[in-house]
Write a protein that binds this DNA or RNA. Structure first.
Lengths: 223, 223
DNA sequence: GCAAAAGTGTTAGGTATACACCCATGC
DNA sequence: GCATGGGTGTATACCTAACACTTTTGC
């Protein structure tokens, strides 16, 4: 395979990866300083980078997270391709954005000199078109959480039903009824009781659950 | 804005556009011969082409349909970006696939020397990764038809409830109850009775309906 | 009058919602 | 013993699904 003729290769192909994770029970997004004078200084953005000649977009996203964020085992799915001519004021760069989700242990262990997790409400005025990417990512998350087991990629391996419900509430943006939520989610048989209990809490310890599957699973409809 | 450094511009950026339309009440996809020796000869594929330096992917898709299919006023939405390294055996080409839908009048008027509409069941063994694009497009259509008014882009301006139901059945792949379907779809208030009737049919003429909106509208859930 | 598709309601079962109190633990 | 969050059931309203016959037209 050879490269395409010059006249078709005006654009650089990139990936941008909005990564979200729970920190102290709140949704955060991972951003890092962007420094590309003269257009982008004193500004932050999601992790991103160029796609290599020998990898597809998903592989590029994995590599970028590894290289620029020291992150492994991140759940990734393709989100949307941003191709506005001037989305990067320096050059024509087309970006295949991927949604990334990390579990709290990964997120907490994450200590990069530059990149850091910021509460999603504070993610604005980002570099390039990353505000738009952020909106698209949250919309995707909202759509997925009611139709799949995507929550499993944001929660620790063992979690309480209250933690799960709280995640749903944060993503959906409204409160849910505790009894109804439990009835519905348990009826789906996607969770199993580990038999273990919370420890070291100063109230009645909650039962710890885990997802029965490690893969993303489509669901009829929750919440 | 200048172009990116050479080392990042190894890939060509393309669009591929699976276009679907109703012909004689059946779903068809639009394909044309592909002739790119030595890898792609005697094979067909969806319309596609390169993205220009001064347009975004959606604009490229519109232009490609205009130039290669003489098609205007096609409903388009971004589908998925296909970036496998060897998806095009000649060169590295990354393609932003877009789903296209045309109304029967547009589809019927369409008479290109090469491109032609083929029943969706017969769309296989296409060039490049177009079989995969076809599957992704149908899956998207299936997901959208129950959550939006996307059916409006496949039907004539005036249509009968039976035609609408039949479209739902073809896309969902199973039959629906006539009375229940009518109740639900009318309750959504997305249709209005035009007051006109079918003419020239040799059975009781059906009432003609039209969508109240010309834009895509999200719905709670149909069928 | 016959063939073909249009149009129309009711019932039963299941699902969604609203709602409040007792329980186990740490301090 | 008190503060904190965990855990549980019922009654009602709503929605879904199943189902068959009469009507209008062209020929």
């Amino acid at each position: 395979m050879k490269i395409a003729p010059e006249k078709f290769r005006f654009a650089a192909l990139a990936v941008d990866v909005p990564v979200y994770g729970l920190i102290n029970g709140k949704l955060h997004g991972l951003i890092a300083p962007v420094n590309r004078p003269p257009h982008y200084v004193n500004v932050e953005g999601f992790l991103g980078g160029m796609v290599d000649a020998k990898e597809n977009a998903l592989e590029a996203a994995q590599r970028v997270l590894q290289e620029k964020g020291n992150l492994k085992d991140v759940y990734l799915e393709q989100l949307y391709t941003f191709s506005e001519v001037d989305r990067d004021k320096r050059n024509r760069v087309v970006s295949v954005a991927h949604l990334g989700l990390v579990r709290p242990d990964t997120a907490a262990a994450y200590a990069h000199p530059h990149a850091h997790f910021v509460p999603i409400q504070k993610l604005h005025d980002l570099a390039y078109d990353h505000d738009e990417i952020h909106r698209a990512a949250l919309a995707r998350l909202r759509g997925n959480i009611t139709h799949s087991t995507i929550a499993q990629f944001l929660l620790p391996r063992h979690f309480t039903l209250t933690e799960l419900q709280s995640l749903y509430e944060m993503i959906l943006g409204h409160e849910l009824d505790k009894r109804n939520f439990r009835k519905k989610i348990l009826a789906l048989e996607i969770l199993k009781d580990t038999g273990r209990m919370q420890e070291g809490v100063r109230n009645r310890p909650a039962a710890l659950y885990t997802f029965t599957t490690t893969k993303l699973q489509e669901l009829p409809l929750i919440a």
